[in-house]
């Protein structure tokens, strides 16, 4: 298992290098006039002039030197300072990342607790009314944009019953219940759209697995249907589902940006939007780096979970 982990870690290196290049180049895309715009817009009263900003962004050096300087600093945890608030970007990320992480985790819990039972049920009773309803629901959820659902949840309860979801953020460790009351609505919306794809995948793989010979053997042994499904079918059926969740990680983060905006969750998405409107490029690239590394880590964990779910993989 250790050799397996090391091999997978090494395979990440080229991807990571390309990812850092993408973040770096996107920073370099900033055209010169944007610096003027930044100067005009942000009204840096500390007397920062063009040269100072260029130096702060490292634009006064050759490209490759800039890249290595930036990468070296990033590896030491220095992502520069926000042009707007003049605080270290790392500090802002440390504040907002756990909030987005909580939102994503809650959404994942919602998605799995909907997708697994419904998908399994759909596969066991293929072409029944329930299967049909589940499939229609998942097709509908795939088409329905989360920002529209979020808007409906905000507007209609307030018009009909004078109730609207709470919008005040409370840190989890200060008051867990109040925190969850706020986070659960955006998390549920995010989770539902994720569950649509996942449910389809669970259904398809379970349909395939349930037709295998070893399932017939398990049934012939006289095992109860629950045991056959949970112990024998689901474990193999889960492998593609886990892959899918890894692939959906970027989508989950993208959705979080929109839902954080609607429900005023002060996470990384809201930080990014704020930074975009203020053209605070160090913050933007910081968010990107964290997201890129985060998704890479999730995919790494997904890879590792294969080894656990399917011992064959370990020895390849």
């Amino acid at each position: 298992m250790q050799a397996f982990i090391v091999r997978r870690l090494l395979a990440l290196a080229p991807t990571l290098i390309f990812a850092s290049l993408i973040v770096f180049v996107s920073m370099r895309l900033i055209p010169g006039d944007v610096i003027d715009l930044m100067l005009a817009q942000n009204d840096v009263s500390g007397g920062q002039d063009r040269a100072a900003i260029e130096a702060a962004l490292g634009l006064d050096q050759p490209l490759y030197a800039q890249y290595f300087r930036w990468l070296g600093a990033a590896l030491q945890g220095d992502l520069g300072r926000s042009l707007w608030r003049n605080t270290p970007v790392v500090e802002q990320l440390a504040e907002t990342l756990p909030i987005t992480f909580e939102l994503g985790l809650l959404a994942l819990v919602v998605a799995l607790s909907v997708a697994l039972p419904v998908g399994v049920h759909s596969a066991m009773r293929q072409d029944s009314l329930g299967d049909y309803a589940a499939r229609s629901f998942s097709l509908l959820m795939l088409a329905m944009p989360s920002f529209w659902l979020g808007t409906l949840v905000m507007v209609f309860p307030s018009v009909w019953w004078r109730w609207s979801p709470p919008l005040e953020y409370t840190p989890f460790f200060e008051h867990p219940l109040r925190n969850l009351a706020h986070m659960i609505v955006p998390a549920a919306l995010l989770g539902l759209s994720l569950s649509a794809v996942t449910m389809r995948m669970v259904r398809t793989t379970m349909l395939e697995v349930l037709r295998q010979d070893y399932i017939r053997t398990a049934r012939a042994k006289g095992l109860s249907e629950t045991l056959v499904v949970v112990r024998h079918a689901l474990r193999n059926g889960l492998i593609p589902v886990v892959t899918l969740i890894g692939l959906q990680a970027p989508l989950l983060i993208g959705g979080a940006v929109i839902l954080e905006q609607i429900f005023v969750v002060p996470g990384m998405g809201l930080l990014l939007l704020e930074a975009v409107f203020q053209r605070d490029y160090p913050v933007i690239s910081g968010v990107f780096l964290v997201v890129g590394v985060g998704v890479l880590l999730i995919n790494f964990l997904v890879d590792l979970s294969y080894g656990w779910l399917d011992p064959k993989v370990r020895h390849q």
Binding site: T15, L16, A19, P250, G255, F288, V291
Partner: peptide, 8 residues
Amino acid sequence: AWMLFPDL
């Protein structure tokens, strides 16, 4: 690497 970043 490109696919690490969400479209949005």
